[in-house]
Every structure is written in structure tokens, then in C-alpha cells.
Design a protein around this nucleic acid. Structure first.
Lengths: 207, 207
DNA sequence: TCCAAACTGGACGTAAAGTCCAAAAGATGA
DNA sequence: TCATCTTTTGGACTTTACGTCCAGTTTGGA
């Protein structure tokens, strides 16, 4: 379990709570900040952790702490939680802290009560109702794009096209496999082979 | 990196955001829920994850996804983020998801815009191609229409709702049956019985 | 309270979904 | 042209999801 492996967690939490929270990963060996996302406190990796009290932590039943209150030098109030992460031997290795700035919520909550307006949302039109239609469109589109009829598409063409179909969800439609195979003019076996390949190497679309 | 080692993170996040969020740890090997804290969705460990292609994930620059929108069967709207956790070899091993119930915030969307706004739908691709969304929308819509929660719908209500779901093509989506059954809160068997009935008597829409 | 209708969990047969392989068909280059 | 490498094919085979069925239990009304 390395900081790199844990990074997605920090990243994702920072995003979820942005801009009202910071996420800090402390290394308990060095007692320094190993990584930090969206720092509210202005700290950077390498800074001392100043959490010292790992001993306190080890006393408790669970490795989850908080939420408990904190205050920043500038007066902002925080809610904080901490998770102790242990290595395979059970030794504490990292401490992950999330600090949420409550000031925004507090002031908001005061103003909130008055406005209780419902929000109507537009259900989007999702997957094509008739997936064969979708299939046809995609195939036709591709063929036109290449100016080559299906039966003369190269292997890599088929790979690319199949990848698109897969991403469009056509293949997660019931009983679609044989139909798709016929559309691409390959055998069912070949389809699965191509599919395995297509899914391995995601043919990055320029998005 | 085991679920046990990661447990404190889940615990701590659930506490921090409680009662407005659930935290789910997916095992990408089995595509099942390894652990869940404060379940809003009623899922339990061992349930299928319904995460889509992990391959898609490998394509991206970062292992952090979201926030993106979701809807629960009961109509609550969620903000979700996901973090992909890899083992030493770089293989995806777990996916940690945090789902925050936004309904409380939505009524204050203006004030809390910063919190609720960054809902740029992006990783559409990686959660199973959105028939679950459709399912949720339809169920939520129906529930709202009747003003009765799912678990108290009458038989004929369920029949009607199921008919809609069927017409919307949800049931011709692979692996959807158990999910739909759970959404309607009936057993798989009962679902098939209802379905047979629904298909016999097309509950004529006035079209 | 009792009955009939409905639901449940599980067993079961079937049909797709996927995997695998040996042989055929195409490519490639000397 | 021949030898070799790659890809495709058809088919056998395993696994997974679908759909049916049934006995036992629950539920909602009369």
C-alpha cells in the first residue's frame, strides 16, 4: 500500500467535496505529509504532520476517528475524520484525514430554510430503444467514413468499429452477439476474439 | 491491500458524510460489493457491483472519476465519485465509490452550487451503460406519481410499472432481471409471474 | 378466523454467452 | 513457388443467465 496506490482515493474525495474540503495523507513513519489534495491549510507534502498522537489512536477499537471539530488559524471551522491504514503486519502506516470546511454550510443552512423549491429534472433519453437501429447506424457510418463496404474492411477496421459498438452498449443487449457478428461479417468466434482485443486496448477516442 | 485494510477509510467517510452518503468498496475480481458503509441503496456485501468494463478505466490518465449524477429508485439524486485502487502490479483491484445524497442540498442549489454543481457527466462509459439509470428514473417517477414508496406498491401498481419498464426495453438488457426484481422489491419468481401477466394484457396506453 | 390468491426460495431444463482448439484460408517474404 | 506466420472458421465444450415450475409460506380480505 503506497501513497501512489492511495492517491485515487484522495483525488476523488477532494473532487467530491471541492472546494470545501482538504484531504491529507500522513506517513506515520516519518510523521510527514505524504500527499495532500485541495489544501485549505496551505500545507504541502513533506510538511510535518503534527499529529503525533498515533499512540492515542492505537488504543481504540476501530481505526476510524471522528468527526471531531477543528479550527483553522483564520477562524474557519472544520469537521475532521481520520482513518488509520495498516500494513500487512498490522502496523499503522498511513493516516488519511479529511477536513471539511463547515463555514459555507453553516451560513448556507441559515439562509436555506426559506427556499424549499423543488427541482424538476429532465429524464434523458437513454439507450436506443431499438438497438438494431443503433447497430446499423454505427456500421453504416463507419463504412461511409472509410468508403469501404463491410465485407472488405480490414481487421483493424473491424476492431475499431467493434470497439465503438461495444462502447455504445450494443453488446450488452440481449442476443445481440450473433447479430453483430453477422453485421461485421465475421464468425461468432472471430467476434469474441476481436472483442477481447478491443477491450484490452481501448483505442483511445480523441475525447 | 485488503478490504480490511481499507475499511477505516470507508468507515470514516461514512461518518463524515452521514447520513447523506454511502460508501461502497467493489472487488473488481469478483465484480461484487466487498464492503459497504451506510447503505442508502439497500445493497449488501456480495451483491453484484454492476460496474462496467474495468478495461475502460485503464484508458484514463487518472484513477479518479466523478463527480457524476445518479438516481436512486426512490428518487433521491446522488453525486458519486469513484477511485480505482490498484495492486503492486498495477492491476485494478478495488473500486471505492462514494455516493452523496444531494436532495438535501438541491433545494439550496444556488447557495451550495459550488458543492453540487461540478456534476460534469464524464465517465458515463464506465458504469454499466445506464439502463440502471433508466430503471431508477422510471421507478422513481412512478413512485412519485403514486406518492407511495416502492415497498408499499400494490400488485397492480407493480404490474403497471413493470409494464412500463418492459416497454422501455429495460428487460431486454442483459442481466437486468435480478436488478429489476430488487427495484420492485419482489422475488425473481414473482417478477416473471408479473411479467407474464403484463405481457399478456398490454395495459393499453391510449396511444 | 379461515381461505384464496400471491409471493418466496429453490430446483431444474434450456438457451445464450463465452472459451478453446485444430484445421482451413489468407497473407508475407525469400 | 514454397514455407511460414497470422487470422478465421466451425464446432465442441463450459459457464452463466433465462425462464419455468413447484411446494411451502405469507398476505390480504371476506
Amino acid at each position: 500500500m503506497t501513497p501512489e496506490q492511495l492517491a485515487p482515493i484522495g483525488e476523488v474525495l477532494a473532487r467530491l467535496l471541492s472546494p470545501h474540503a482538504e484531504v491529507v495523507l500522513h506517513d506515520s513513519a516519518t510523521d510527514q505529509i505524504a500527499a495532500i489534495w485541495n489544501p485549505l491549510s496551505g500545507r504541502v507534502p513533506g510538511d510535518p504532520s503534527l499529529l503525533g498522537e498515533l499512540d492515542e489512536l492505537t488504543a481504540t477499537a476501530t481505526d476510524a476517528y471522528g468527526p471531531y471539530p477543528k479550527v483553522l488559524p483564520d477562524g474557519r471551522r472544520l469537521s475532521s475524520v481520520s482513518a488509520v491504514l495498516r500494513d500487512d503486519t498490522g502496523e499503522p502506516k498511513y493516516v488519511l484525514c479529511v477536513n471539511v470546511d463547515r463555514t459555507a454550510f453553516e451560513s448556507a443552512s441559515r439562509l436555506l430554510a426559506a427556499f424549499a423549491a423543488p427541482i424538476s429534472a429532465q429524464p434523458k433519453a437513454f439507450f436506443e430503444h431499438d438497438w438494431t437501429e443503433k447497430l446499423n447506424e454505427l456500421v453504416a457510418g463507419y463504412v461511409q467514413e472509410r468508403g469501404v463496404p463491410v465485407e472488405r474492411l480490414s481487421r483493424s477496421d473491424r476492431l475499431e468499429l467493434l470497439s465503438r459498438l461495444d462502447k455504445a452498449g450494443v453488446l450488452s443487449q440481449r442476443k445481440s452477439v450473433p447479430v453483430v457478428a453477422r453485421a461485421l461479417q465475421v464468425s461468432r468466434s472471430a467476434l469474441y476474439q476481436l472483442l477481447a482485443e478491443a477491450r484490452k486496448e481501448p483505442h483511445a477516442d480523441p475525447a
